[in-house]
């Protein structure tokens, strides 16, 4: 297990390094950064001055190591737009996005897994049909529309929940449901498919032949084997939620990191974009690593050769 974990960790570090190179290159791939910073009416002298001020005149490798070294210490430079340290700017936004992401994936897992198991236990039953309906609806409904409908019902008509902002936990209820419902169908269907396959396995019959009860067979013997792909999928979904919750953040005016990334791209605020890409990627890599480790723990065939 330790060897496996170390190998995965090594891989994760390599991927992180690659991602850092790519996100650093973005600055230079989109044209000369000094020219775009100087603006349309800048003279060649202005551009040279800016280039010197920001250190763009140094060799790329020096710039990269300098940038990476600072990034590792939490210094992502200064936002071109806000004239604030990027790290401070992101910290607030990231906590909102993380809260939303964790709530949404938890909501998705807590509804999708039990529903998937129930659907697999009785295929083609009412439960299975209902679960199928819910998942098709979740897949088909655009989140912006679902979000607006929720606002109309719960904020405007019933006046139960606040429509925008991120001040209290109540502000997070609707965004969690909307974002979580988006991730739910895939998790539900994968759980169902996995359980259907595993429940037909010979070792399930062995467990029943031993005299194990229905609950024990279902959760100890079947779910542990069926859940492995679901763990991997959840990691991908969670990574997606961090960067891809822009729509949901926009609808509910949650000023999260996804929303910031979207705004910063529009403003050509490259240090912010760079930092966000690096951070999102690191989280993505972290979730993948965690899901690999979780799966290795669940399935010994992954960790024991």
């Amino acid at each position: 297990m330790l060897a496996f974990a170390l190998k995965r960790l090594g891989l994760a570090i390599l991927v992180t390094f690659t991602v850092s190179v790519i996100s650093f290159s973005l600055l230079h791939l989109s044209g000369d950064p000094a020219t775009s910073l100087a603006g349309e009416n800048a003279t060649a002298a202005d551009i040279a001055a800016i280039s010197r001020q920001y250190g763009f005149d140094r060799p790329l490798t020096v710039q990269y190591t300098d940038w990476l070294w600072k990034a590792l210490h939490g210094d992502f430079g200064e936002s071109y737009y806000f004239k604030l340290p990027v790290a401070d700017l992101i910290a607030d936004r990231l906590s909102i996005t993380m809260t939303l992401g964790i709530c949404a994936i938890s909501f998705a897992l807590l509804t999708a897994v039990p529903l998937g198991v129930a659907a697999a236990v009785r295929p083609n039953s009412v439960v299975d049909r209902t679960a199928l309906f819910l998942s098709v609806a979740g897949q088909a409904m655009p989140s912006f529309w679902f979000g607006l409908v929720m606002i109309v019902i719960f904020s405007i008509k019933l006046r139960l929940l606040p429509a925008s902002g991120s001040e209290t936990w109540r502000h997070f209820i609707m965004p969690t449901v909307v974002l979580g419902y988006y991730a739910m169908p895939a998790i539900m269907r994968l759980t169902r498919a996995g359980m259907l396959e595993v429940l037909n396995a010979d070792y399930i019959r062995t467990a029943r032949a031993k005299g194990a009860g229905a609950g024990r067979v279902l959760f100890k013997h079947a779910l542990r084997n069926a859940i492995v792909p679901v763990v991997s999928l959840s990691a991908v979904q969670m990574g997606f939620m961090l960067g891809g919750s822009v729509v949901v953040e926009a609808i509910f005016s949650l000023h999260g990191a996804g929303y910031l990334a979207w705004e910063s791209i529009g403003r050509h605020d490259l240090p912010t974009v760079q930092a966000l890409i690096l951070i999102f990627s690191c989280f993505y890599i972290l979730f993948t690593l965690l899901s690999d480790l979780a799966n290795a723990w669940l399935d010994p065939r992954i960790r024991v050769g």
């Binding site: 396995a201 010979d202 070792y203 019959r205 062995t206 467990a207 029943r208 032949a209 031993k210 005299g211 194990a212 013997h221 542990r224 084997n225 669940l298 399935d299 010994p300 065939r301």
Partner: peptide, 21 residues
Amino acid sequence: ALRGDRMAMIFQEPMTSLNPA
């Protein structure tokens, strides 16, 4: 309560009859 205690069963497929986890 009887299954696995007073009467037990051995199956055809030893390769797949044990839980891999």
